[in-house]
Design a protein around this nucleic acid. Sequence first.
DNA 1: CGAGATTTTGAATTGGGTCAAGTTATGTGG
DNA 2: CCACATAACTTGACCCAATTCAAAATCTCG
Lengths: 241, 241
Amino acid sequence: MALPAPASQPKSICSNCNLAELCLPVDLTISELQLLDELSAVKRSFSRGDYLYRSGDKFRSLFAIHSGSFKTQILHEDGREQVTGFQMAGEIIGLDAISTDIHACEAVAMEKSIVCELPFNKLEELSRVIPKLQRHLHKIMSREIVRDQGIMLLLGSMRAEERLAAFLLNLSQRYAMRDLSATQFQLSMSRQEIGSYLGLKLETVSRAFSHFQEEGIILVKVRSVEILNLARLQACINSSR
Amino acid sequence: MALPAPASQPKSICSNCNLAELCLPVDLTISELQLLDELSAVKRSFSRGDYLYRSGDKFRSLFAIHSGSFKTQILHEDGREQVTGFQMAGEIIGLDAISTDIHACEAVAMEKSIVCELPFNKLEELSRVIPKLQRHLHKIMSREIVRDQGIMLLLGSMRAEERLAAFLLNLSQRYAMRDLSATQFQLSMSRQEIGSYLGLKLETVSRAFSHFQEEGIILVKVRSVEILNLARLQACINSSR
DNA sequence: CGAGATTTTGAATTGGGTCAAGTTATGTGG
DNA sequence: CCACATAACTTGACCCAATTCAAAATCTCG
């Protein structure tokens, strides 16, 4: 598959803090939930283009995206940069920084977004006390590893159109999980950003979009996409040589 | 850089269990170390080609490689497969399985190897009691995320020779960290496996080796490699277009 | 409405893939 | 320990998917 189906995440009930929604385990006691709410008390909002953190920043917190979306990208010293992911509401970012206490990549808002700060020290303390939370945190980190390995597979062994198909299907699944349309959505990223993420040039991405449209698989108008035939899009990916 | 320098890991003193060597935090009390030793009591040995776990296996434990080395690979339903990493002594594998309780990839011994099993439930229990261990576990998982993102950068934006240079330098650093020669070593993997890891065909890998040799940067004889000029190898990587 | 950014499309180029043949290792059984 | 078979590696010639360069079209937003 590559870009594996995002493991279905619990839709939560985290009382005051809606943002921890998809991110935190569900079956906690009331008092445990209160502790979580305290943990995630600080919210911040961002406009398109704002940095949530930059490469080199000191690590203090993970961030739960409450609304909106972000991209994360790595900077290579020689100026190359690559988008490593597009994150949407309910997802957690900043996991890469735990390793060295320094953020290894940067996170940029793709649109107006609200983010909930989760101080990592406190998160660790809490997860020592609430084993379910501990396990959930581990699952979140592991899921990120699996996701990244899916992208490695994509980058290492798929051709341009297969990559774009996998990308669109992944978006589709993630929208569906949020009870949004799985077949009609607006892209919040440019061709250039999609290309960077998929290891392709923007022209190649554009051509692949056009080709899918010619084939009647999708309908594209710049940032707006409608998937006409999910099955054929799926079939693209398995058409290995 | 891509394939970022493996963060220097503590060289440990884990009393009876040498394998947890590089993997576990150093400054623990005697009684904490005893707990760790109990955790990692079970050792198993493997011959070249043996599976440590297969895709789909139920997840129970992480594994610390005590000696030898493994490769991990993902299987794509249509038969494609891709090597996602080569792990050597002191490294921990199996992190991808935490996410779903099912192993997402498979691990195969590259040579005679000994592995120490770390039952994950017990590891979690212990890390609730030993905050240093908790943090260390988190760092290990995060390091894996950073490593994978480095490979994404490599696969997404580097040309064939840059990829091979990055690969060789990464091996070199890891050998150096283990007090082995940074400039002379035996490859335990085939051209095909290297290619799979780097998103290249084996012929391309072979040609890149030959070209580095013509350039006087390395000396290759099939599986044996000597790096003659580390600086030039490093320079290859930054020679982006 | 207009200026700059983004996207599309075309044509030419090229890096890596494919296919094929030859060579060098490796391992097995006699 | 050698002979042979098989697997792994190298090299060459050709090809094609994706990149590059360029120009035109479209979109976005002040």
